[in-house]
Design a protein around this nucleic acid. Sequence first.
DNA 1: ATGAAAGCGCTAACAG
DNA 2: CTGTTAGCGCTTTCAT
Lengths: 349, 349
Amino acid sequence: VTVSDDNSVLRKSATLRDVALAAGVHPSTASRALNESTRPMVKVATVRKVLSAADRLGYRPNSLARGLKMSRTFTVGVLIPDLTNPLFPPVVRGLEDGMAGPGYTVVAANTDGDDDKERAIVEAMLNRRIDGLVVATARREHPLVQELARSGIPLVLVVRTVDDSPVSAVVGDDHEGIGLAVRHLVALGHTRIAHVAGPQDVSAGLVRYHSFLSWMGHVGLPVDEDLVVFTDAFQEAPGAEAFRTLLDRRVEFTAAIAGNDLIALGCYDVMAERGLHIPQDVSVVGYNDILFCDKFNPPLTTVRIPSYQMGLKAAELLLDAIKSPGDAPISLRLKPQLMQRRSTGPVRS
Amino acid sequence: VTVSDDNSVLRKSATLRDVALAAGVHPSTASRALNESTRPMVKVATVRKVLSAADRLGYRPNSLARGLKMSRTFTVGVLIPDLTNPLFPPVVRGLEDGMAGPGYTVVAANTDGDDDKERAIVEAMLNRRIDGLVVATARREHPLVQELARSGIPLVLVVRTVDDSPVSAVVGDDHEGIGLAVRHLVALGHTRIAHVAGPQDVSAGLVRYHSFLSWMGHVGLPVDEDLVVFTDAFQEAPGAEAFRTLLDRRVEFTAAIAGNDLIALGCYDVMAERGLHIPQDVSVVGYNDILFCDKFNPPLTTVRIPSYQMGLKAAELLLDAIKSPGDAPISLRLKPQLMQRRSTGPVRS
DNA sequence: ATGAAAGCGCTAACAG
DNA sequence: CTGTTAGCGCTTTCAT
C-alpha cells in the first residue's frame, strides 16, 4: 500500500488500526487520543504521536463503524411536503444551520403528500438509525406522527402540528397573524372581508380560519358564511378555483385574506382573468411571506412567519430531545409580522 | 423483551439474529433469505419461514452494519450553494427522484460559497462513506472538485462545470440559450443590446458572456465593450449594482440580457429606482426561468433551463459511475427554451 | 441448501 | 495511562 503524504480528500482512508500501528500504540489508545472526550485519558506525548500519525496517513474515521458501535449516527431526518414549495427551503436551512454546530447532518426527504411514500421514507431513515426526526408534513390527524411520538424517537414538528398530542412543535402564532391581517384591513376601512381558507385537515388551515372568525367578531364585523371558501391544498390552482367560487357567489366584499401566499397568487390569477384590479377592486392579503412576495404584481401584503427561525428553533428542541429523551414536549409559537405592501389599499367608495 | 405484533414504526428493531432464532435457522440463512439477490440459494419453505418471522418481529435491517460490511451505503451527497436560491430545489428534486428508484438516499448540503465549509462537508460525507457525489457548486477552477475527480469517487457536476477536466457533467446549452435571447431581441428590432454578465469564474457566467459576444457578431451587430458589465455573484444586489454602472455610462441601449433571473431582478429594481419602464425603455431578458418569473412585474422573458431534468440526468450518470467506476466521463448539454413574456417588447422609436 | 467462522472499523468495559 | 477483549449487526467465504 502506498500512502501519500497528501492530506487532501483523495487519499484512501486509513483505518484506526493503521494509525495505531504507525504511532506504535494500540488501536484503543489511538481511539482515545483521537476522540475529543476521551483524550484527557491519554498522555500528552502519546496524543501528539497519534494525532500526527493520523494526520500523516490522512485518517478518516468511518462513521458507519462508529455509528454501529455507539448506536448514534449524528444524523437527523426532516420530512417536508416538497422542496420546491418556497416555504420550506428556509425552514430546512434553519434546521441545518442549527444542527451543524453540534455536528449533525440533516437528511431531507419529500413526501409529496403521499402517506405511503412518507412511511417508506421514515422506514428507510429508521433503518439508517437517525438520531431524531423533524416533521413538517403533519396533518391534524396523522397516524404516522402519532406512532413516532409514542415510539419515543426524538421528534419535533415544524410549521404544522397535530391535534392535542404530546409532541414538541415549532409553529407560527397564526391567531396573532390573522389578527394582524384583519386589523390592517379594518384600518383601511374594509368591512366586507372574505377568507380563502387553506385545507382544514392541516393545523395552519384550521387555525387561520378559526382565527379569522374570531377576529372578525372581535372587531365587530358580521361573519357572513358566504364570505368564506375552502381549498384542499395550499396551492395556487386550488386557490384560484376557490376564489372563482367566491366571486361567483356575487356576495359583496372588498378584501380577502388568503390561507397562504400561493392561494393569494391564485386569487391574483382570477382577478386578472375577470378584469378586476388589486387593490382597487379587492385588497388581498397572503400568509407566510415566501420568496419574491415583494416582486409580485402588485407586491403582496402578507403576514411573515419567521421560517428560518422556526428551523433553528426546531433544531434546538430536537437537540434537547436527543440529549434528554425523557423530557416533556415543548411547544413554541413564533410571532408573525405584517408585511404591508401594495396588494391592500383603502376600501373603494 | 416484549415483542409486539405491531408492524408499525414504533417497534424496537429486532436483529437478524432474532429473526433467525424465531425462524429456527442460522443468521446467515436468514440473511440469504431476506436478501433479494441471494434468496434463490435458499429453499422456498425456509424463505417463507424467515420472511414471516421477520415480518412478525418487525425486522428492520441495520443499514450501518450492512454498509460497514459491504462498503456501500446507498447514499449520495449533493453540494449546492444555497437551498434558498430557487434555482436549486428543482435540481435536487430531480436528483432525488432519479436516485430513489434504485434505493439511494441523497443528502444535500449548502456550501454558501465557502471553500472551507465545502471541504468540511465533503470530508464529513466521505467519512459517512457516500457512494457518490453530485456537485452544483463548481467554479471553473476548483481544486476540491479536481481532487475529487482524481480520487475516483463517482462524481457528477450539475449546472456548473469545471474547465477542461475529465468529469461527468450535466449543464444547459448556454450558447444555444443566449442565441435564443439575442435572436428574440433582434427580431424585436433591438440593435443596442447590453449584457449584465454573471461571475466569470463560473462556467455559466463565462459561457453566457462569450456566447453573447459570438451571437452579436453572428447577427451582425457591433459589440460595444461599454455594453457589457460584470457581476461578482448571480444575485439581485450585484445585478442591480452592475446595472447602475451600465446606466451611468450613458451609452445607448434598448435591451439587456442578464446573466440569470436574479440579476434581471436587480435590473428591475434599478429601472424602478430611476423611473424607467420595462420594456418601454429597456427590454430585459433573464436566464433559468426560476419559480415565479411569470409573476414578476412585468413577467420576465427568460431562457428556461430544464433544471429538474438536469437533476434526473445527473442521477443517471451518477448511477452509471457507481455501477462502472472505470467508465469515461460523460458530458450532457440540455436544450434551453425561450419563455417569452412581457419584459421584452419592440424597440422604442 | 444450510451452518460455521470471520471480519468490516470502531468504542467500551475491564484489567493491569 | 495503556493494552486486552469483546461485540455493535451484518454479509460472505468456506465447509458440509
